[in-house]
């Protein structure tokens, strides 16, 4: 029993230490959002009273509703479409194996490693020819079939019990019904993780939106933050406030969805 207490204590101590290291920069960011720029630079670590002023400065430079609206629209549409298209493909590659598709998959994994900078110019030509410049479609379309998420779903599907699928087949379910009514509910935690990851990626996407979104009204919050830092004497209080605001949506999504990591799929197996 003593060794149990010791081990527990050690686990808590280590987790608390790691949590402290993880939180500190975030804490600094939040505190900085309430301080004047000069205080941020000199490393003040206590909350200040400049939050309202920072917010007013930010709101006067940026149409926050519009910009956050753009970011939410792009991130939500991207997430939903990516999850649908990429989980279908990941499931398809794992469940229905064939030599040809296996080769296709290996090729995709190789494509995953191509740096985006190498593909950006031709992709831009493509988008311009389709007259999609400066539209959200230009941002969203190229990200929907994410090789990375396809790969993730394929790996996660390896844990999907075959018995479930066989049973469903015996019951006369069609393949799309099996995916929709058996696979999808079973893999809740996988979908939860993928939602967090895809949303975060879409929300923070920088280089590609920078190239295709051209007018100020269409910019995302990630692009706007970058322009805030460009000044010769940047206002760090305002920048940190903007980054805190930009962080919240992903954080909330994580906090809500992480409960799925507990629920699990055991009920479904038995």
């Amino acid at each position: 029993m003593n060794s149990y207490v010791l081990k527990r204590g050690l686990t808590y101590a280590l987790l608390s230490f790691a949590a402290f290291l993880s939180v500190f920069p975030f804490f600094w960011m939040v505190v900085g959002a309430t301080n004047k720029s000069t205080d941020v630079v000199t490393g003040k670590l206590s909350p200040g009273d400049n939050l309202i002023t920072n917010f007013q400065n930010l709101a006067s430079q940026v149409d926050l509703v519009r910009i956050f609206g753009n970011s939410f629209f792009i991130a939500i549409v991207s997430t939903v479409l990516t999850l649908i298209v990429s989980s279908l493909a990941g499931y398809g590659f794992e469940i229905f194996r064939s030599r040809v598709r296996e080769r296709v998959f290996q090729l995709l994994l190789l494509f995953l490693s191509i740096p985006f900078a190498a593909l950006m110019v031709p992709l831009f030509v493509l988008i311009s020819r389709a007259q999609l410049n400066n539209t959200f479609a230009a941002v969203i379309l190229p990200t929907i079939a994410s090789i990375f998420i396809i790969f993730y779903f394929r790996q996660a599907t390896k844990a999907f019990p075959h018995e479930l699928r066989d049973a469903a087949r015996v019951d006369g379910l069609k393949e799309w019904q099996i995916f929709l009514f058996v696979y999808l509910p079973t893999m809740r935690s996988t979908y939860a993780a993928a939602t967090i990851i895809v949303f975060m990626g879409a929300w923070n996407n920088y280089l590609w939106p920078l190239i295709v979104l051209q007018t100020n009204e269409n910019k995302t919050i990630t692009l706007v933050i970058s322009t805030l830092t460009a000044a010769y004497t940047p206002d760090y209080g305002v920048i940190l406030l903007a980054t805190v605001l930009a962080t919240l949506p992903t954080l909330i999504i994580f906090f809500v969805l992480q409960r799925q990591f507990v629920a699990g799929m055991l009920g479904a197996v038995k």
Binding site: G69, N70, F73, Q131, T135, F136, A137, Q214
Partner: peptide, 9 residues
């Protein structure tokens, strides 16, 4: 935003 998708630049 929706309009932006259907419109060209």
């Amino acid at each position: 935003a929706f309009a932006g998708i259907s419109l060209t630049s």
